[in-house]
Amino acid sequence: MGSGITHPLDTLDAPVPPAWSTPEDQAAVEQRVRHYLHALGVVAGPEVEILVQQVLKRVELQATVAQLGEPLEIAIEETHRLLDRWLIAELGLEAEPDRLAAARAAVLGGHVPGWTQRWAGLSETPLTEVLQAARFQAVPERAPLTMEASAIDLCCHRLARRVLHGLGRLFGFSTVQQAAKGSH
């Protein structure tokens, strides 16, 4: 292998500096979480502060288990997980990933007013009904019909082969051939 070509395993040998050890690292993660929450639609100061703290606590918990190589990714994942947990609790979902995805699309699409307040725990008003009403329905309930391929009997398809086969049958050749095949 030439000097300019790297093997995928080389990545394992390259040292990865810990990225949660300095205050600068933590500040960068916090800033990214704030941006992400803003993109989700959480813009009110108190809501942002509460949710940022919750996410950072989760990231710290992960850092106590193992050194974090990519804390930004962990932070985004944790924010996401936090949202999903809230939606599952709000809707009382049990192993219904399609409904969870629909609810997530509803809140992030701006169809559920006041959801950020509720997510941050600053509102007592349940949103279960609103979330269910805003459920996405891209397709209606299934109403299946059977649609099998129709037979189209082509004229002259493999005519020569069919004629030869017919002649072979006529003279008992194909039967002999099949018997010969069967004996192997």
Partner: peptide, 13 residues
Amino acid sequence: PGVYALHDALLHD
């Protein structure tokens, strides 16, 4: 995130 969530919701699990 809104577009991502919409696309995700239109996929089948």
